[in-house]
Write a protein that binds this DNA or RNA. Structure first.
Lengths: 243, 243
DNA sequence: TTGCTAAAAAATCTCGAGAAATGATCTTGA
DNA sequence: TCAAGATCATTTCTCGAGATTTTTTAGCAA
């Protein structure tokens, strides 16, 4: 029953859009996360409606749905904007993720059954394959990797009984995706992400909660460090909304 | 700057509605929290538009805003419903609140300055007056008490640097308000809430993080216990949507 | 009575046009 | 030259009506 809440509150991207609003919502969300619409940008309904080929009211509803994900901010009588970004915001996101995700992982390790084990084995396998392909081809982050990385992280905490933590984790993951894409694109880091994932996977499967949560924490903080090392002017003009 | 995010993402009820959508949103939210629209109820746009005296599209947008608060769930081509309730959900809400709110309180106690102290002193004073009035008149929970209780809890964590934790706390507080109103209305409990608040207030002002968080945790868990003691059939027919 | 099919009713979703508000441009005066 | 005010264009907000989809009702046969 309550399962429905999260399904509806957070339509995952794999879901087929049942309505025009949902379709516009999904495409808009992707364009925001990928940076097509830059942080702080104004989202004018009149302009966007033709690009996404829907009516004005429909587009407004899609924008409202993105407010739920905190990817768009609405201001009274002054329309919509892409949510701004800042280093302070990403630090906050990461710390809050550590708090929520380690707790959820602890719960998963304590409560997870065979289905949970099978799920993380499968998700890790799929992620490993994608990471191997990336290593072979020396390319940047791919759409495929992003989806499988998300699936792996969500599988790890899927046995947690707390739907609310999973709900908030989902929102925060989307947020960090914006930062990660931008930072990894600009400054590919020398970092063995696969090894981190492997260690996290093994500790979780071994039911070693202490080790697993500590690995997860470091895993998240390393991405924060990467963003910290971005050029100082990186966030200038991105978050204020003032060009 | 980012302050704007939360202001816009979570228009507090004290804010004047700048638009018809916001007005409908605020009234709808109050009616859901107060139980006028019961959990699981279908929210038919055609019926509600005349009651709230707005157009269909406007009401749809207000409903979408309530999805952000997780007070309403939207299902593809099948309209809107009031989010269901259940004991398991309230347990989840409470545990997640403990996790987030104790962390935020720790941060506040560590980082709060004079303005923070002044804010909680003022909020506690206002709350105490309301509680005294309630004790004198032997009445149930009043609108005034609800607002001041919320203000007190938000003031306690207002010095936390984490906007995200405060954002999630705000959502969860609204959720628990639904449960608290229903349970307190049906079964007024013999419990000295004022004493709990006073102890919480004093420990916070004394910067005793350990004691303050422990009091806060018990404070929240006591309300959970009260809901647990509700009649067994209390949640029947409320959350499933099937009468 | 039960179960299936089909029509009818209701509700949701979608769009385009009009009203209100915001922001930009230009003029005027010190 | 700068500041303040007025006019105009853009944008947001709002509504009502039409097109789809879902749900209910009615009919018929087993």
């Amino acid at each position: 029953m309550s399962e429905i809440i999260l399904r509806q509150t957070l339509p995952s991207e794999a879901q087929e859009p049942k309505t025009l609003v949902e379709g516009a919502y999904q495409r808009l969300r992707r364009d925001i996360i990928e940076g097509t619409h830059a942080p702080g940008d104004k989202l004018r309904v009149e302009h966007l409606k033709e690009h996404y080929d829907v009516g004005a009211g429909t587009l407004r509803e899609a924008l409202l749905m993105l407010v739920t994900d905190a990817l768009v901010v609405a201001q009274g009588q002054r329309g919509f904007r892409v949510a701004p970004i800042s280093l302070a915001d990403f630090e906050d996101i990461t710390r809050t993720r550590v708090l929520l995700e380690t707790e959820a992982l602890r719960q998963s390790i304590a409560a997870g059954g065979e289905e949970w084990e099978a799920a993380i084995v499968a998700a890790f396998h799929r992620l490993s394959r994608a990471e191997q392909r990336l290593a072979d081809h020396e390319q940047g982050i791919s759409e495929e990797w992003e989806m499988r990385n998300r699936a792996f992280h969500e599988a790890l905490i899927s046995a947690s009984a707390s739907r609310w933590i999973r709900h908030f984790q989902h929102i925060l993951y989307q947020q960090s995706e914006r930062y990660r894409r931008i930072s990894l694109f600009r400054q590919p880091i020398a970092r063995d992400i696969h090894a981190e994932h492997q260690a996290l996977f093994e500790a979780s499967l071994a039911r070693d909660a202490t080790r697993a949560t500590s690995i997860l924490t470091e895993h998240l903080l390393r991405t924060l460090d990467a963003v910290r090392r971005m050029p100082a002017d990186f966030f200038n003009g991105k978050g204020t909304g003032k060009p």
